[in-house]
Amino acid sequence: MRIQKAAFKLKLSEFTIYRSNVFLNFFFGCVPLLVYIFLWKAIYGNGLERIGGYSYKQMITYYVLIFLCSEVLDARDNTVKMSEMIQGGQIHNYLLKPVGFLSLNYRLYQAEKMIYLLNIGIPFLAFCLAIHKFIYWKAYNLLFFVISFCLAFVLKYMIGCILGLITTWVEEITGLLDLLNNVEKFLSGSLIPLTLLPSGLNMALSFFPFKYTLFVPVDIYMGNMKSQDMGISIGIQAVWCIVLGLVLIILKNEAFKKYSGYGS
C-alpha cells in the first residue's frame, strides 16, 4: 500500500506537467461522439424503435460509455513504453527492484489511470450534461459494472504487457500493435455494439478476450443482460484474467531469460 501511495504521488507530479495535453486529448476525443449523435439520429429517424436491442438514447449512451471506458482502459502507452524499455535497456530500472517487474509496473499503471479518471471525471460529467437530452441516465447493475470494469482493466493491462514483452523476440512491435488495435476496436465493440453483428459471429467473439474488455462492462451497465448472463460474463472475464495472467508470467520469465540488455 505504501508503494502504491508513493506511485500515486509520483504519477500525480508527472500528470501536472502533461495535464494540458491530457485535457486537450480528452476534449478532442469527444468530437466523434457528437458525430454519432447525428449519425444514429438519421438511422433511427426511419421509424426504428430499437436497433440491436438499443433505443436511440441507449445507443448514444453506449458510445459515451465506450468512449470513457476505452480512454481509461487504454493500455497502448504502457505497451509502447515497455517495448521501448526492452529495446533501450531502461528495463534495468524495474528488473533490479525487489518488488518484481510486473508488480511495480502495474502499480504505476494503476496510479496513472486513477489520476486520469479523477481528472477527467468532472469534464466528462460536464460533457454528459451538455448532451443530456441524448443520454439514457438509468444505471443498471452499478456494482456488477464496477466489478466487470475492474476485470476489464486488468485484462487490457495484461494484453498490453504480453504484447510489450514480445519485443524481446521480435524487436519491433509497432506493426503488431497497430494490427491488434484495429482488430480489438472491432472485436471489443468499440466501433458498433456487438449485438448488431450476426448472432453466429457474436457467439464466436465470446471465445476471444476482447469482447470482455469493453462491450461486456458497458452492456452490464446498460441493463441489457439478464442476471444469469451477467454472472457468466463476469466469470468468463475472471477466467480470462487467470489465463492471461499465467501466460504473462511465463512470457515474462522467458523474456528475461532471453533479454540481453541492449542499449548500454
Binding site: I3, L10, S13, I17, Y18, K97
Partner: peptide
C-alpha cells in the same frame, strides 16, 4: 534511473518505499 519530468525527491520517495 530517475523519472525525467519530476523532481529527484519524488523518485527517491518511491525508491525508498520499494
Amino acid at each position: 534511473q530517475l523519472w525525467w519530468d519530476i523532481s529527484a525527491y519524488d523518485s527517491f520517495e518511491l525508491e525508498g518505499q520499494i
